[in-house]
Amino acid sequence: MRRIRIIATGGTIASQDNGNGLRPTMGPETIVNLAFSEDDEFSTSIRRMVDSGELCFDIKEIMSVDSSDMRPELWNRIGEEIDRCVGERYDGVIILHGTDTMAYTAGALSVMFKNLPIPVILTGSQLPIEAEGTDAKDNLRDAVKALLLMADERNIDSNIQKSIYIAFGGRLIDGRYAIKMDTDRFDAFRAVDSLHETKLNSSDFKMNEEYGSDPAGAGDPTGHEEDNRYTKRDSDNNYSYTEFSTSKVQLIKVHPGLSPDMLEAMLSCNLDAVLLELYGAGGFPSLYDSLLPVIGDAVGRGTKIYAISQCMYRKTDLTRYEVGRKLLDAGVISLGSYSTEYALAYIMMNYSKA
Rank of each mutant, 00 (worst) to 15 (best):
P119D: 04
V120F: 08
I121K: 00
L122C: 05
G124W: 05
G124S: 13
S125A: 15
S125W: 05
P128E: 12
E130C: 11
G133K: 03
A136T: 07
D138M: 09
D138H: 01
N139F: 03
N139M: 02
D142G: 14
A143T: 05
V144G: 01
K145W: 03
A146R: 10
A146L: 08
L147M: 01
L149C: 09
D152F: 00
E153F: 00
R154V: 03
R154Y: 08
N155R: 15
D157R: 05
N159C: 04
N159L: 06
S163P: 04
S163C: 12
I164Q: 10
Y165M: 11
I166W: 09
A167W: 01
F168G: 02
G169N: 10
R171Y: 01
L172G: 06
L172E: 08
D174Q: 00
D174W: 09
G175F: 09
R176H: 13
A178Q: 01
I179R: 11
K180M: 00
D187W: 02
A188K: 03
F189Q: 06
R190W: 06
R190E: 11
V192Q: 09
V192W: 06
H196N: 13
H196Q: 15
H196P: 11
H196I: 05
E197F: 11
L200V: 15
L200G: 07
N201M: 11
S202H: 12
S203L: 14
S203D: 14
D204H: 15
D204F: 14
D204A: 14
K206S: 15
E210R: 11
Y211M: 13
Y211C: 13
Y211V: 08
S213L: 13
G217F: 02
A218G: 06
A218I: 04
D227S: 05
